[in-house]
Each structure stands twice: as C-alpha cells, then as structure tokens.
Design a protein around this nucleic acid. Structure first.
Lengths: 146, 146
DNA sequence: TATTGTTATACTCTATAACTATA
DNA sequence: TATAGTTATAGAGTATAACAATA
C-alpha cells in the first residue's frame, strides 16, 4: 500500500542523496571563493547565530567541534570568517563574518532562493506558498521528535 | 521579500543538514541488520525498481556505478541482495532482493510509517497526502533542472 | 575536574583509473 | 568502439584521541 509516509520517504530520500545536495550547492558557489557543500553550513550558521564559539556552532549545525574548527579555518583563510576572543571566556574564540563573508552569504542565499523559485516556476502561487508552509512545518516537527 | 523559494531554502537547509539525515536514517534502519545510511539507498532502489543493473541503479539513486557495486556487494554479503545474470545482456548483472532483503525492506517500511505517522500525527490525512504529492513533484523538478 | 580550541590520526564515502568480458 | 561489472587507488569529510590553556 502506498501511504503518505512511503511517498515522503522516497521523495525525501532523493532530496537527501549526496548527489542531489552536491549538485544543488555546486550551482550556487560559482564566483564565491572558499564556500562549498561542507563550509556552507558553517558560514550560514555564523550568519544565523552571530559571533559564536566553534563548540556551540558545531552543536547547532550537527558537526563535531573539530570539523567545525577545520572548516572555519578554511573560511578564515579565504577571508570570509574572522576569529575574535570571547570577552566572557578566555578559553573560547568567537567566529564572526567579515564583510566579504556577509556579501558571500547574501549572494549564496539569493542564488538559493532563485534556484527554488525556478523549480517552482510551473506551480501556481497558491500551491507554492502552501508547499513552503507544509515543508516548514514538516522540518520543524521532524526535528522536534528527538 | 519572503518568497516561497526563500522559505523552502530555510526549511530544506535544515532537512539537508548531516545531523538531520543521520538521525532520520538511524531511526529508519533501527533493528535492520546490515543496512546503514549508505547501503539503504541501494536496497531501497532495488525494492522500487525491481531487478536492475548496477549502472542503471546508480544513475537512479545518484551514485557512481563503482560505489553502487560496492554497496551492493555489502548487501549481498549480509544476504539482503542477490545477483542474477541478465538474460538479455551477458555483460550485465541484475541486482534483486532476497527473501531476507524483502523482509528488511518491509521492516524499514514499518519503521517509516511509524516515523512519519509520529511527525504527521497532527496533520489531517488530506494534508499529509497532498504534502506527499507536492514533495514528490518538487524532488522530481529539482533534479530535472540539471 | 571539566571545557575550550586545535592538531594528528584513522576510518569511511565516493569518484577516477584500469582491467576484462560482451554488445 | 562502447558499455557492463569489478577492483585498486586517491581525495575528502568527519569522528576520536590527545594536547595546552582556562573555567
């Protein structure tokens, strides 16, 4: 029997495939030095959370702090992130966007939005809005069930 | 401006996080011996497509045929897949589910139903069905835009 | 003692290269 | 010549272990 669950599994499975993710992100990073499918979550996380330690950021984006540090260093080398001492904790280092980092985040985000809007070009606006709302709700509730 | 694309970007970004994927798959394959986050797409693909060559399966699930072969061998070692000669092409080998493979897919499917029932427990059946259809369409069209 | 960032290390995923057999 | 499956190999992602500094 074909249930909503099995249909969602199949479709979501394809979306979650490494190749789909890689292809999606590959299209967005043209002209943005130093950002790829692995460093994007770090860059995007700093953009969302503001100056943040590697430990906390790692927890938020589901990466180990050692991997977070590694990708943050890569982003720092290309000038998109900078490190600041944490005034409240001398052990910690805060990761923050540089101006170039802010610009990169803006560009990538615009590209992503454009990509999805293009995918939805044959949908009615009503259907697209509804789907967006349902996907938001689904993502929320899936992560709530920890 | 908040377009459907921007809302999808945010929601899908959360779904694509490695931690979300790992957590989801870990729950799906609970209690299924020999299946993990990498072999699951292979097993699931054979279940969906029926007896299929590694080349065609790889194309379908977005994996290189060498990786597909490797994971298929792993599934064969644990008795979930078997290889059959292709009667129409002596170069090809068809991958098919064994009885244990069918049982594993059935168990995963039951886990899926449980998982998504829990996520969708507050949705009407109509909304769940509609969302499943829209997600299928979205996944199709996102991959078409190559 | 616990936690921070970092580096070193090991393991896994996955693609490319190369080989053999068949269309 | 092109395509099938397979194995060997190499590059990259990511976790664990270990270290020094600070809470």
């Amino acid at each position: 029997m074909t249930t909503p669950g099995s249909r969602i599994e199949e479709a979501l499975g394809r979306l979650l495939l490494r190749s789909t993710r890689a292809r999606l992100y590959d299209r967005l990073i043209e002209g943005v030095e130093g950002v790829d499918v692995t460093t994007y979550p770090v860059l995007s996380g700093v953009a969302r959370l503001g100056p943040v330690s590697a430990s906390k950021l790692g927890t938020e984006i589901g990466l180990d702090r050692t991997a977070t540090t590694k990708y943050a260093s890569r982003l720092a080398e290309t000038g998109l992130l900078r490190r600041m001492p944490d005034p409240h904790d001398a052990r910690a280092t805060l990761l923050a966007l540089t101006e170039a980092g802010e610009a990169a985040v803006e560009l990538i985000r615009r590209n992503l939005v454009r990509e999805f809007d293009r995918t939805l070009r044959n949908w009615t606006n009503e259907a697209a809005e509804r789907f967006a709302g349902e996907l938001e709700r689904f993502a929320d509730e899936l992560r709530e069930d920890d």
